[in-house]
Design a protein around this nucleic acid. Structure first.
Lengths: 142, 142
DNA sequence: TAAGAATATTGTAATCATTACAAAGTTATG
DNA sequence: CATAACTTTGTAATGATTACAATATTCTTA
């Protein structure tokens, strides 16, 4: 996996967010940031357990919550029964999940979505999810 | 609960959708259609079990899937760990969930959202979710 | 730098929504 | 009416997530 965001950058982000950058936390944040995907807790655990043999599933869950609460990760509820994670501090975008292969893709985010909300409601997050078939699966289909 | 959509209307909808309108299915669809909320499987089961003592939780789950597959219900993945259900054949709208009281509200749906998707992707559903604080909770807060 | 306090990690056991499955019941069709 | 197709039911399993308590690590400050 190509490292697009270095551990020192991530450590710095964690400091600014008030989260102590333990080895495990940096590893988990780095995994999400650099996986090029939108992994689940279990994918993160399985892949990192090879490198960090003492890593616990509970730590992965704890850490994901901590990082999400700190605003460093974004939780994607795009697939029922499996929370997916995405690095938060990047241009706001929407997500597409392929019903066939299950992969999640980034899409652009239209402007001014919040105006769809009724006045009187305070909005602190907006999630836009598309579902359908990705180009790869459309091709391998016919 | 005020009945806005009659059982005969729902039965007719089920016929058109190719779903056999059993007693249980009509009861479940009617519950979702007329609850004024966006209930979970468990809420549906708990409330209907009083009227239909032999009703099984499995039937509720089976039926919700059947109705969703037939396009009569829409599944809302707005709250992690709890699928919520909404009547599908009504004007497309988005949803807001209050982080405090957990209630789900209907909001309008902006036009042309699909244009946010990258070309080459086939979109068959669009979900827009807002999270925040509802007016009631904002008031009882201060 | 050592001691004590605060915080993080770990492993196991529980929880809880959902699904699998097989038996029993119901409805449609010929 | 008989048979096949479909639906409902209850129980048992699954699987993601959480609770909890013990251990380990890090921070503070004397």
């Amino acid at each position: 996996m190509k490292i697009a965001i270095s551990d020192s950058q991530l450590t710095e982000m964690m400091h600014r967010a008030g989260v102590r950058p333990s080895v495990q936390r940096v590893a988990i944040l780095s995994y999400v940031a650099n996986s090029g995907r939108h992994p689940t807790a279990d994918e993160i655990y399985s892949d990192l357990a090879a490198h960090y043999p003492t890593l616990s599933r509970t730590t992965v869950y704890n850490t994901l919550h901590t990082l999400a609460d700190a605003g460093l990760l974004r939780e994607l509820e795009i697939e029922s029964g499996n929370m997916h994670y995405d690095l938060a501090p990047q241009p706001l975008h929407s997500h597409f999940i392929c019903r066939k292969c299950g992969r999640i893709f980034d899409m652009t985010m239209p402007e001014g979505l919040s105006s769809a909300a009724t006045p009187g409601f305070t909005i602190d997050s907006v999630d836009l999810y598309f579902k359908g078939c990705c180009p790869d699966c459309l091709n391998s289909d016919h």
